[in-house]
Amino acid sequence: MWLWFHKLGSPPHFYRTAGRLIPWFAIPAALLLVAGTLGGLVIAPADYEQGDGFRIIYVHVPSAYLAMFGYVAMAIAAAVGLIWRMKLAFAFAAACAPVGAAFTFLCLATGSLWGKPMWGVWWDWDGRMTSMLVLLFLYLGVIALRGAFDDAAKGDRAAALLAIVGVVNIPIIKFSVDWWNTLHQPATLSKLSAPSMTMDMLGWLLVMIVGHMLFFAAVVTLRLRGEVLLRERGARWIRGVDGRA
């Protein structure tokens, strides 16, 4: 177990493993996303109340999910990096941040597009939207703080600490819909109770969520390989790496 852990932490080994892993994430992601898009946009029935407008849920919910998942993953990696001084964990946190920020933006944008026909407004200052916006700012803060340091190792550690402090926002987002009973509808998916969707709609949503997750994994792994190359640019093993490896 520990041997595996140490091996994963060594940049050349990781670089090779990640290169082999990417197709395993990317190909299923492409298949699931195509299937889920077709299923969600064409096959699933129109909603009783919202008509075809509800179909944006097939992008909105997965991206909201990944926005939060990405932040938690980044914060855990940051904590691992700070505690065990693992360089690869910092590289992971650095690779995660822009992708998570992009998903947060996508979630806000699709939510806004969805809000206009359903609520009549592009934006409303309710708890969930505001805390999602704060999440976007937190992502940007982490990225900006890392960029502000000339010393990359110091920037990594400062950004890691900020990422951990920012975790307080995640439960606020998660429960904001229950705490502030405003425009945003309550969660559709919940572990404890039956989902408030019929199976023929829900199935495609799950396909889309898994597809988005695999896409996230593929992109982060790809970026992580880039980060490893950037951070190890003086190392000897890099000479053996060419563009095709």
Partner: peptide, 25 residues
């Protein structure tokens, strides 16, 4: 917290705002 994070930066003022204000919401 934010000031301590940016204490060693020469031009930390801009970053400071981005770090503090979201947490102050």
């Amino acid at each position: 917290v934010a000031a301590a994070l940016t204490a060693s930066l020469r031009r930390g003022a801009g970053v400071l705002g981005i770090l503090v204000l979201p947490l102050a919401v």
